[in-house]
């Protein structure tokens, strides 16, 4: 545990001493801010139109703002994951510092966990910025906070999966760009698999759409904690971390 903490703090510090963390935080906040603005605006416009027509449909902040925004967030996240994970191992391999880590009395899994947790922590920081926007909703409206909390849990779990996959890919190369591009490719695939179910009903389509990370986010976005989706995320996280530590081992055979 102590070793995980040592690696975790070192990684987190290296995110924050370089511009990368600030860049990601800012970009994430701006992009989400844009979506938030559009969502609020259309909500308000929609509400006024209804009033003018004299209809009084029930307006629900949770359903009409929070839920689509959470789905947006889960997709925006896909684009940021590669930038968080690409350097984790690739950079250590390139600069030779991996030799320091692997000749220190640490287990491979401790190194992997420390690095992954640091990536998750950075992502949590990014999510915290977006939650400021939602705080604004609580100030002016009266949404239900529980679905929102579950939505955030889902975002965290989904990011945990993709970060684990990205960490794994980062062990496969000493080139950050390659690691980043490959992770980006995988993230996109795990997103577009979701659409396959829409135009095909074969078993393969079912399997592919089951594999999609974003499909499993739907229940969280609705504010429902579905066990099967939570299990999917937990499995992918564990599997990703396991693969990463195996890859570290075999990395020594190959390098």
């Amino acid at each position: 545990m102590r070793n995980v903490w040592i690696i975790f703090t070192k990684e987190l510090r290296s995110y924050f001493v370089s511009p990368i963390a600030y860049l990601l935080l800012t970009m994430f906040a701006i992009i989400f801010g844009f979506f938030f603005f559009v969502a609020i605006k259309s909500f308000v416009v929609f509400g006024m139109e209804q009033q003018m027509r004299g209809e009084m449909m029930p307006m629900n902040v949770n359903e009409q703002i929070i839920r689509p925004l959470l789905s947006n967030l889960s997709v925006i996240g896909l684009f940021f994951i590669p930038m968080i994970t690409m350097r984790l191992f690739a950079e250590e391999k390139r600069s030779g510092t991996i030799e320091l880590l692997t000749t220190s009395p640490l287990r491979d899994l401790e190194i992997v966990l420390g690095k992954w947790l640091a990536a998750v922590a950075l992502y949590v920081a990014m999510l915290l910025f977006t939650s400021l926007n939602f705080a604004f909703l609580f100030h002016y409206g009266n949404p239900d906070w529980k679905p929102l909390a579950i939505g955030y849990l889902g975002l965290l779990l989904q990011a945990g999966c993709l970060l684990a996959i990205g960490t794994f890919i980062s062990t496969l190369t000493r080139n950050q760009i390659i690691a980043g591009a490959a992770t980006f490719g995988v993230c996109l695939m795990l997103w577009i698999f979701e659409w396959v179910a829409g135009f095909d009903t074969s078993v393969w389509a079912k399997i592919l759409s089951y594999l999609s990370v974003t499909v499993h986010f739907d229940s969280f976005a609705r504010g429902v904690l579905e066990l099967k989706d939570a299990v999917y995320y937990a499995t992918v996280i564990l599997f990703g971390l396991f693969l990463t530590s195996r890859s570290m081992e075999s990395l020594r055979w190959r390098s």
């Binding site: 070192k10 600069s95 030779g96 510092t97 991996i98 030799e99 320091l100 000749t103 220190s104 009395p105």
Partner: peptide, 15 residues
Amino acid sequence: KRRIGYLPETPPLYP
């Protein structure tokens, strides 16, 4: 590993 101090060919430094 606990008992070894190792200086690799390229010093393993974090810039």
